[in-house]
Simulated assay, not measured.
Amino acid sequence: MHTHRIQINFTIIQFLLWFSWGTFGLFYIAHLEDLGYSSKLIALTIILSTIFGILGQYVLGFISDKTSKIKYVFLGALFLLILFVIGFGFAAKHLFPMIMVMSLIGFVWLPLESLLDSWILSTKGLDSSLYGFMRAGASFGFAIMTLFFGGFVIKYGYDIIVYAYVITAGFLWIMAFLTKTETIKEPHTKEKIYVKSLLKNKAYIAILIYSMLLFITHMGVNNFYIYIFKNVGGNASHIGISAAFAAFTEIFGFIYARRIISKIAPLKIFLIVGVITFFRVYLLTIATTPTQAILTAILQGVGFSLFLASFKLYVVKITPTRLLASAQTIAAGVTFGLSSIVASLLGGFLIDDFGIERFFDIMNLIALVALIYIGLLFLHDYKKRKSLTE
């Protein structure tokens, strides 16, 4: 298949992946809150789902690296996810079955995006610098769905999130199945490369720590959006509009990511993202109306798109191709997994026992720590490069 055609196909797959997830992933927490579950039980559900997701990252990443069949691992995981979401429709009103099903959903959903990214970045003949353009398709899909779907949820009820996901994810599975690609093959070597070697990669570990700190604030806001908007008089419809604002902004960030990355060093981009994230959390803290809270999503979109495009390519740069799937899935497990666990623990405990104000205080503190940390990494790298030129 022609390279240009493959690029278009991957853009459509990214679009459908997040178009479909926008129907379920953004609203299931609001659904659980509507069913009467407390923020602590919702936090427990998110934590267990994320723990299973981290396990899934390792298992599916290992299988992909071992078999070099990333596409088919992706298709298998997506098929299971569709079945588990159907199961959620039956289990949502019953605590233990609901938690079990959400854990299974986490096991396959969390690795799904990183598997797709690894499939894209390991495809023969495809320019990896175009990743940002293809990822813009995901933001566009998520934006289109969430902009209008919140209104449908308000009108028809939360049961619609299951039906909508199954239908849209079905189209995604068909599109992915029909996309034919070849994988980049590394030159043969007798040297064995182990996943544990990633843990000895100082650059890899350093950026994982930053991504975890950064995304504790992102996941804290995303996981408890319903409480944040209720605090300023909003509802599920405002959650959808806010997510759409963020996603539409991401589109421009991803489209221009290639140009930005070619001119600005990764650590400098990460520093800029740290500043943007800090101001986003602070402005959300002082927001008093749904409109003000929605507008802060623009900063989220800019920061998220710049970070993700740079982060994915940076991981490709500092890790061997044969460990690419593992490197990407572990990175996703830390970025979206561990950070979500910490954010859920903090949110579930703080919101129930101390109120939303204390939750915001901690989110602001973590955003500040992340900014200081990346600032120190940037300063260390600057001094190192300066000493080499002298």
Rank of each mutant, 00 (worst) to 15 (best):
residue 3 T to W: 13
residue 6 I to Q: 15
residue 9 N to C: 04
residue 9 N to T: 00
residue 23 T to N: 09
residue 27 F to Q: 01
residue 30 A to W: 04
residue 39 S to K: 10
residue 41 L to W: 14
residue 44 L to P: 01
residue 45 T to S: 15
residue 47 I to K: 00
residue 48 L to K: 04
residue 49 S to Y: 02
residue 59 V to S: 10
residue 60 L to I: 01
residue 63 I to N: 08
residue 63 I to C: 08
residue 68 S to W: 06
residue 80 L to D: 08
residue 88 F to Y: 13
residue 90 F to H: 08
residue 92 A to G: 09
residue 98 M to G: 02
residue 103 S to P: 04
residue 104 L to Q: 05
residue 109 W to V: 06
residue 113 E to F: 15
residue 129 S to G: 06
residue 132 G to N: 03
residue 138 A to V: 10
residue 145 M to P: 06
residue 149 F to P: 05
residue 149 F to W: 08
residue 149 F to L: 05
residue 155 K to G: 05
residue 163 Y to T: 09
residue 165 Y to H: 02
residue 173 W to R: 15
residue 174 I to K: 15
residue 176 A to Q: 10
residue 183 T to L: 13
residue 183 T to N: 10
residue 199 L to R: 02
residue 202 K to Q: 08
residue 202 K to E: 07
residue 203 A to S: 14
residue 211 S to V: 01
residue 213 L to A: 00
residue 219 M to Y: 11
residue 234 G to V: 05
residue 237 S to Y: 00
residue 237 S to K: 03
residue 238 H to V: 15
residue 258 R to I: 00
residue 263 K to H: 14
residue 274 G to W: 00
residue 277 T to I: 07
residue 278 F to G: 01
residue 279 F to D: 05
residue 282 Y to N: 12
residue 285 T to H: 14
residue 286 I to A: 05
residue 292 Q to I: 04
residue 293 A to E: 04
residue 293 A to R: 02
residue 293 A to D: 01
residue 302 V to P: 09
residue 303 G to R: 03
residue 304 F to V: 10
residue 306 L to H: 03
residue 308 L to S: 14
residue 312 K to E: 12
residue 312 K to A: 08
residue 313 L to T: 00
residue 321 T to E: 12
residue 324 L to D: 06
residue 330 I to L: 11
residue 331 A to M: 15
residue 333 G to Y: 13
residue 333 G to T: 07
residue 333 G to H: 07
residue 336 F to I: 05
residue 344 S to A: 08
residue 347 G to I: 00
residue 348 G to A: 11
residue 356 I to C: 07
residue 359 F to I: 01
residue 362 I to N: 06
residue 374 I to A: 06
residue 377 L to H: 06
residue 380 H to P: 12
residue 380 H to C: 03
